[in-house]
Nucleic acid binder design. Structure first.
Lengths: 160, 160
DNA sequence: CTACGAGTTCAAGCCGACTTGAGGTCAAGC
DNA sequence: GCTTGACCTCAAGTCGGCTTGAACTCGTAG
């Protein structure tokens, strides 16, 4: 298969041309050359874009993704980093699972106010949604979690 | 317990005062009144903030959260909506699980390039990371998924 | 040879969720 | 009565991941 122009890459991946240019600018993908002004892409870019999409779907930032993909454009990734990311995802999944349970429970819990329901409160605690020392049940701890948070972590502790 | 000023709410929840003002402006929380210029909050706001944190941790937008929390400030939420959100979370969890497996596998798969490994490709497919009709194995479908995407869904299909 | 359309560059805009900063107010303690 | 410092408002800034628009350049079909 010969080199493709940006439109074909876009068509085959569903990724808009503007995004492809943006990715190139960020160094996530590379064009093999130009014909006139036009970029030419090696078919291997399709794989790379699939991996990028995978990362994005996993909630990773573009910078993290480019750190995971090998610098030379091959797809050998750093094993340690991959495992770390998997662990991160694992924690996220556990948190989301707890939240899902909380929602399901809240949807059919007979308690007038969800917060009065021990099951719900437990789910909140598991969700690590923060320590909100609301009256009824004692204070609990929350370990720091991160979804897509940047600097600060509101929703997390700061014990007085 | 008497009404609290913004600093106390902040201290007890870990949510910065600026964020509390912002939430009030958006109608997510309400102050019960003022003493001079200063906002006063009913202790019930702590619960509400816990629920908001829960929603945020679940990846929901503030607008979605305020739609889930009752307009009158009580915490009765719309059951249908809650279930829908739980389902949404469920799909997200499944996707993330597939991605986690893909990462774990990639970390120790002997194949030189992950994309040549059927297990990895399968994980990508499950992840719904898009249809990237890379040569070796045939095209597959991806149903639209949404993490925190806004309008467009790059990474998803557009069969020619 | 020329016009066309698909590609290009670069700067600016957008969205959500906040944060920051300048300048103002006000209750309480000395 | 005055200072202090916590709180206030409002506008603007930030960050990531793109998109959009204006102005321009080419290869190719007619």
């Amino acid at each position: 298969m010969k080199d493709m122009d940006i439109a074909e890459v876009s068509r085959r991946t569903g990724v808009p041309a503007s995004t492809l240019r943006y990715y190139e600018e960020k160094g996530l993908i590379a064009s093999t050359g130009r014909r006139g002004l036009r970029r030419l892409f090696d078919p291997a870019v399709l794989e790379r874009l699939a991996l990028i999409a995978l990362g994005r779907a996993g909630g990773f930032a573009l910078d993290e993704i480019s750190a995971m993909l090998a610098p030379d454009g091959l797809d050998k990734m750093d094993r340690g980093r991959l495992d770390a990311k998997a662990d991160e995802l694992d924690r996220t999944i556990q948190r989301l699972t707890a939240i899902r349970e909380a929602l399901r429970h809240a949807a059919r819990c007979p308690a007038a106010r969800p917060m009065e329901c021990p099951t719900f409160r437990r789910a909140i605690r598991l969700a690590g949604a923060g320590r909100f020392d609301v009256a009824p049940i004692g204070p609990f701890k929350a370990e720091a979690v991160s979804v897509t948070r940047r600097k600060r972590e509101p929703g997390n502790v700061r014990l007085e």
